[in-house]
Amino acid sequence: MAMSNPLFQYTLRLGDDLLILSHRLSEWCGHGPILEEDIALTNRSLDHLGEARNLLTYAGQVEGKGRTEDDLAYRRMERQFTNVKLVEQPNGDYAHTMARSFLFDAYHLPLMQALLKSKDEQLAAIAGKSVKEATYHLRASSEWMVRFGDGTAESHQRAQAALDDLWTFTGELFESDDVLAQMTQAGIAPDMAAVKAAWSKTVDEVLAEATLKRPADGFMATGGRKGMHTEHMGYILAEMQHVTRAYPGAEW
């Protein structure tokens, strides 16, 4: 993990987050709680996948070794994936899925808004497209948090449990390291303190309306950006990559 190409590494993490979250959401396709929701969730998964493809393609170009989006998605192992642990967490019940998306969306939207002003034109252009989608995603996941929190006793309890379970994975979203520091200094990545403030404000507002409690900041999980994942990651990749790995060199 040499620091030779921080733009490559930065773009890759943005892409990995969306690729893995999209993958998790796509597991719901055909199994949603009602047909209308099944369709909505698949849209969300498709949006994330589209953004991931743009980012991975760009990462490959930045790296300059001829790697395509598919090389990056299908030919890396767990230790080379740099997504946060939040997005690889299993779907659980619908409250877990929605809470995971809500916590991510509340980060993703202000991040994309800030990236509009990135000095890297390509990232700014990708953000331009993503902002519209991310606005919609956050609105929809916020509404579900409110419905669950302020719905039935069961839904309230499930939503609270999901937040409590996932909270430990939120610290990583704002973690700083050398890659990020260099990118921020270069005006390519935004100031993450501002993104975190926006995230925190959204979370407070939505949880208040949902009558849910914001969990206390305790121990925060870390490691995803360095390729240290939860055990779930290996299974995700095993499933995702098994066909391509079984037929090396084949076109699809």
């Binding site: 796509s26 396709c29 849209n43 998964s45 998605a73 499933e239 699809w252």
Partner: peptide
Amino acid sequence: WITRAPSLKRKAILLAKVQ
């Protein structure tokens, strides 16, 4: 097969189709 589609393009197409 969505989670096992062998390329990201095929995965997007399949997702859109099943949707």
